[in-house]
Design a protein around this nucleic acid. Structure first.
Lengths: 339, 339
DNA sequence: TTGTAGGCGTTATCAT
DNA sequence: ATGATAACGCCTACAA
């Protein structure tokens, strides 16, 4: 069809040069109002659209930001994306999404690709298994901002926006204790990840601060799904001295546990209290609503985006920034004995 | 820091020309194995990375695809994104996400922006209120593929991947009838949107085909959330002749209705059967699991991506393609009387 | 097999 | 106020 119209096409029509057209289009002061008006007119007539690619090549800024995360179709991550997009789009940035599927190799390839695509920044949450840090350093070496969210690695020059998982876990456990629970179990997922380790530590510290002995057999590592939760609950209840409460680092696992307990005639919250983590939508939809720690993913996304924007403004001034967001405990039926 | 290395840097080291380097890097046959090897070596040493921007400018192909949808943090949409990304990333495409927030003006601006950014294609689900089609035609005029998913407009040259909402609704209604339900209500959302209109039509036709009179007062339009569902259920049950079943075009509204019914001592499924639409995750998590029509969003995303890839291959051959996916009814407790 | 030169669309730095 | 020119990094005829 009709080739794209360039500033040269406009220039030709008006018998002026492309440079002048460019100035007119960019509100350059060194140009007469008259020619400016004419250029704008012809541009409209010819349906001229700036080619961002050319601009990007020239300026070295692509106005694209890469967002890398394990998987998009999970409530937490899709909310983060939403936050990032809402903050960045109005500033003229496009958001490129890539999924690692928790695969370190894929993560490395993706980052290579984004760097080749000349993204202006990378906002990411690392894959579970990622051990290497070489690819992160590559990013920083090219002097482009790297902002981690939720799952991070401590790397000089990289910023991060995380949740205070420790205090979230502490608060949740404290709440269970206040409900009169004395024997509190904990479901963790993968303590080699900082976030889960911190949740564990918060849980443990709350127990100790309240003079409650910490019991190793009450801590179980499992996958984040319903079946795993059911099974783990079974394991717990078959202990010689079973617990009477659970703080789960996963909402789905918490749900599984609740299902198992109910099936076995254990009343919630009368006999057993449960608090989950993530504040997944379904926790509010159940008949027995589930208490959970909210991670404010939307805010996390927005904050990560803002940190990126700051770094862009700061030009060469490379100050790594570490933002820690406060979780908020949503108390629901599964842990509401009093009142 | 160190400037990015270009093919010129490599050329300089080897005392050859950039063209030769380019050929070596691109497996061009017209080059000696020796120089090729050397180039590759030096490229590795200098940590050379191809600048995709330059390539894009030269070739006119950005290897970016725009994905435009109302909002990302909704189960359906985030699953579609996942499908698209999984299909396109391995083919070397990056996926740019933008949200319209159901705002037509924003949709227009976003598309303008994507066109300026020279995307190679646009995969999108239109905003609710969108009436104009001018911006869609702009896309096609530039000869770049436009693929709608779920919510589409019929435009010459545009492809689409949709769900057979009609048959999904028909099947759901038929199922309710088979459960012995005689008076079936319907929650719709916005019948000015094709998908909801089709669900309504499928519902209506199933009634007629079974010799069941269609009752206008059983059809309510409402927002897709729990409270609206509760309220609408109240309206229904206060009718002189209240229904004994509900086919809701929204899972959340279905949940609201179920909550209201339960609160008022109506037993589900014994007294009243419910089927929703979308197969949201929570429908399986409830104690009373909710029957729902699955939209296979992941497949929808993958299919849309494949259609795009086909169109790219087909070069100038612009064949618009219309794919219609089959829904599948997930029968759960909320509508399981028999057996 | 390799080098030369031009162009993709912009902007910026000189001149004029 | 405007024009000419170079440059961003790459690819590809064409020439040698």
């Amino acid at each position: 069809m009709s080739k794209k119209t360039t500033i040269y096409d406009i220039a030709k029509v008006l018998n002026i040069t492309a440079a002048t057209v460019s100035r007119a289009l960019n509100d350059n002061p060194r140009i007469s109002e008259d020619t400016k008006k004419m250029v704008l007119e012809v541009a409209a007539q010819l349906n001229y659209k700036q080619n961002k690619l050319a601009l990007a090549l020239k300026s070295g800024k692509s106005k694209n930001v890469g967002v890398v995360l394990p998987i998009v179709n999970r409530n937490f991550f899709s909310n983060v994306i939403r936050g990032i997009e809402e903050e960045l789009n109005p500033m003229g940035y496009n958001v490129i999404i890539s999924q690692t599927h928790e695969d370190e190799k894929k993560e490395i390839v993706i980052i290579q690709n984004l760097l080749n695509a000349q993204v202006d920044g990378i906002i990411m949450s690392i894959a579970r298994q990622t051990k290497s840090t070489e690819h992160f350093k590559q990013i920083l070496k090219k002097n482009i901002p790297l902002i981690f969210f939720d799952r991070k690695k401590d790397i000089k020059g990289a910023s991060s926006v995380t949740l205070n998982d420790y205090s979230g876990a502490y608060e949740a456990t404290q709440h269970l204790i206040e409900q009169g629970c004395t024997k509190i179990a904990h479901f963790t997922v993968d303590r080699s990840l900082e976030i889960y380790e911190n949740r564990f530590e918060g849980y443990k510290q709350a127990l100790l601060d309240n003079g409650i002995g910490f019991n190793d057999s009450y801590v179980l590592g499992l996958e984040s799904n319903i079946d795993a939760g059911r099974e783990a609950a079974k394991t717990l209840m078959e202990l010689a001295d079973p617990p009477n409460a659970l703080f789960s680092a996963s909402d789905l696992a918490a749900l599984g546990a609740i299902q198992y307990l109910k099936d076995n005639g254990i009343r919630i919250p009368e006999d057993f209290c449960v608090v989950g983590f993530s504040n997944e939508p379904f926790t509010q939809f159940m008949e027995l609503t589930i208490s959970s720690v909210d991670q404010s993913p939307l805010l996390m996304g927005k904050t990560a985006a803002k940190v990126f924007l700051e770094q862009m403004d700061a030009a060469n001034v490379k100050i790594e920034k570490r933002v820690v967001l406060s979780p908020s405990l949503k108390i629901r039926k599964s842990s509401s004995r009093l009142n």
